[in-house]
Simulated assay, not measured.
Amino acid sequence: MFAYHNDHIDQYGWRPIMITEVSAVNFRQNLGEMLNQVQYRHDSIVINKDGKPVAVLVDAELFARIRKMRERFDALSGHVAKAYGDVPAEQGMAEIEAAVAAERAR
């Protein structure tokens, strides 16, 4: 039934989660079972169409965390864009690359 399984450790609860990849047809045929898998086991389902991922079904708690992280990222990106608005692109990218390199060296 499932095309691919990939076990991961959830970084928040340290519980193993399973990521399953299925075709859109398989997903449609087994929707109830997959909803239970996501709701009760907190697994994730990657839905493929023509062999390419097009959507992911995740539990509501994980989605809420993803949404919050995206809001924080968007706010941070806005602050960075505002702070570097007058800086030439090459100079800004050089500063960002230097900061990333320094952080990776730590």
Rank of each mutant, 00 (worst) to 15 (best):
H42M: 11
G51M: 01
I19F: 11
R65S: 00
A102T: 08
N30E: 02
Q91V: 12
D74A: 10
R15M: 15
R65T: 01
F2H: 10
N48I: 01
K68M: 01
E33V: 02
D50W: 05
D59A: 06
A3Y: 04
M34A: 02
E33S: 12
N30P: 00
E90F: 14
P53W: 09
W14E: 10
I17E: 03
L57W: 12
E21S: 11
D86P: 08
D86K: 06
A101M: 09
A81R: 09
A64L: 02
K52L: 07
D10P: 10
D7K: 05
E71I: 00
R65I: 00
R106Y: 04
F63L: 13
Q91W: 07
P16T: 09
Y84W: 03
R28Y: 03
K52S: 06
W14C: 10
S44K: 10
Y4W: 13
S77N: 11
H8P: 09
G78F: 08
M18D: 02
E97V: 00
I47H: 04
R15N: 12
V80T: 01
Q39A: 13
A83V: 04
P53G: 08
M34I: 12
E71N: 07
R70A: 03
D74V: 04
R72C: 03
L35T: 10
L57S: 00
A60D: 10
T20W: 10
N30Q: 11
Q39S: 14
E61W: 09
F2S: 07
A83P: 08
R15H: 15
I17L: 12
W14T: 12
Y4G: 00
R72H: 09
I17Q: 03
D86C: 06
H8M: 00
G92R: 15
A101R: 14
L35W: 00
S23D: 07
Y40F: 15
V87K: 11
E103A: 13
V54R: 14
A55V: 08
Q39W: 10
E95F: 08
A94P: 08
I66T: 05
V46N: 04
E33F: 08
Y40V: 03
D10G: 05
I96T: 14
D10L: 01
S23K: 02
Q37M: 14
D43H: 13
D50P: 04
A55N: 11
G13R: 15
Y84A: 05
R106I: 04
S23M: 05
Y12K: 05
M34L: 15
E61H: 06
K52F: 02
M18V: 09
A3E: 02
N26T: 13
A98P: 02
H79N: 14
G51V: 10
M18L: 05
I66G: 06
A3D: 13
V22K: 04
P16L: 11
H5D: 10
G51P: 00
G13H: 15
N48D: 06
E103N: 15
G85H: 03
A98G: 04
N48G: 00
F2P: 06
K49Q: 15
A60G: 07
F2N: 09
P53T: 02
L31W: 01
